[in-house]
Simulated assay, not measured.
Amino acid sequence: MKKIAILGSTGSIGKQSLNVIENNPDKFKVNVLSCRNSIELLSKQIEKFNPEYAVVEDEQDAINLSKKYSKTEFLYGMEGLISAASKTDCDIVLNSLMGMRGLEPTYHAIKAGKDIALANKETLVAGGEIIMDAAKEMGIKILPVDSEHSAIFQSLQGNKGKEINKILLTASGGPFRGFNLKQLENVTLEQALKHPNWSMGNKITIDSASMMNKGLEVIEAKWLFDVPGEKIQVVIHPQSIIHSMIEYADHSIIAQLGVPDMRIPISYALSYPNRIKNAFESVDFFQIKTLTFEKPDLKTFKCLSFAYEALKLGGSYPVVLNAANEILVQQFLKKRINFIDIQNTIDRVLQDHNPTYNLDLCKILDIDKKIRESLKNN
């Protein structure tokens, strides 16, 4: 039985992970739960799963909860997340935190010898080099939870050492597929939050609408699979049935397919190298009938091209790209800026940036903080 620490248990991935665990009580035990301030939902999760530890953002919430749940030890803040990820008795840390918040706990969990189920792409976007170096040093596994990276990981099984021509990273195209720049100027928050295929948290849903999500996944794929950016090709696939593909040196292509249900890659990451039975929906090819593919429109959805450029330039550029995007998405969610302002402002920030190289964790966090402060003050 694997002991699981879930960082971000009240978010979309966290809740779906708990569904997988609940349906497989003989295989998994929840050791850690965490949330920022969804205290009511966290309380229900504690009552159901009886974790040894739980982490919240505020000290007072930790104090209040400890009075109610005496069998659970409560931690708080970033230090609490780091302790829960690195010092508790767990076999695998599922990082489903939102944004840059996932980097530090993941780094310290790796240094403590914990395997990682990674659903937080910003960890590798901002800290790919230090994370992968630490994983190699400690001999731990980083198991991708994102459907696309899980598909790539699965398509690589049994082909270790085989030459890869390219990774074909699929994308739904989001709710604004086919729009031009003029149309993007007038889209609303409500439209941007209506993803055609996936049920996700607000931040990742907006990233999908802007295609930044796919840009971040390109950078993540580079680090996870040690493939240069020029060998990672984004393919728009509106049906979201093929989750990604690998083309090998002989031009054979291996793909992973499934319905758009995040519980499938979650269960694979948690149970790896095994697969567990489930009652999830399967693909009905006779009902689907047609799978289609398109080139991404990089002139309209500029965030994707920014990600490729940041990856090429390296150093602190991906850190800046990620930090700027997080702040701007937050501002859009609060209706302080327009949708098109996300990519326009990221463009300006990247052009103004004076890069730094040979980054360690402290430098990454410092650059991230400065970019956020500069955009909050604008």
Rank of each mutant, 00 (worst) to 15 (best):
L359N: 08
K194F: 05
I232E: 03
G11T: 07
Q343F: 00
G99F: 05
P144Q: 04
S9Y: 04
N338K: 15
I364A: 04
D89H: 09
E230V: 13
G139Q: 09
F49E: 00
A112N: 05
Q157N: 11
W223P: 02
G178D: 10
N322Q: 02
K289M: 12
R275W: 08
L350I: 12
E190C: 01
I246Q: 10
N358D: 15
M138N: 03
G173S: 10
A126F: 00
L193D: 04
N186A: 10
Q60L: 14
D360L: 06
Y107A: 12
Y357I: 12
E326V: 08
N159W: 09
S282M: 12
I116A: 06
I82S: 05
N344W: 02
K302D: 03
D360H: 08
I63D: 11
I364D: 01
N165M: 10
F286H: 12
G314M: 11
T123M: 04
N24E: 06
L65V: 11
N325V: 08
S66I: 08
P318I: 11
N344Q: 12
L156H: 09
M212H: 01
L181I: 14
K67V: 14
N95V: 08
A221S: 15
I346Y: 07
G113H: 12
N197Y: 06
F49R: 01
T72D: 01
L375Q: 04
Q287M: 10
K376H: 14
K67I: 14
L270H: 01
S199A: 10
F301H: 09
K335Y: 06
E59C: 11
G178Y: 04
D133N: 15
Y53R: 02
Y357L: 10
I266D: 00
I4L: 07
A62F: 05
N23Y: 00
Q330L: 13
M98C: 15
H195K: 04
K160W: 11
I254D: 06
E247M: 14
K162L: 12
S208V: 11
H195Q: 06
L313V: 02
F225I: 07
E294R: 13
K162C: 07
Q331Y: 09
K277T: 13
L189V: 10
K114E: 08
S316V: 11
M1I: 09
Y248G: 02
V187H: 02
Q287P: 00
K289Q: 15
A126S: 14
K121N: 07
I266K: 00
K111W: 08
K370T: 14
E148W: 12
L224I: 09
M211T: 07
T356N: 13
R101E: 05
F301W: 06
Y76P: 04
G315R: 08
I39Y: 02
S244I: 12
I46E: 00
E247R: 11
S70H: 13
A209C: 03
L193V: 04
Q154E: 06
N344C: 06
I367K: 06
S83P: 00
K335V: 09
I276N: 03
V30E: 00
D61F: 12
V30L: 03
A134I: 07
A5Q: 02
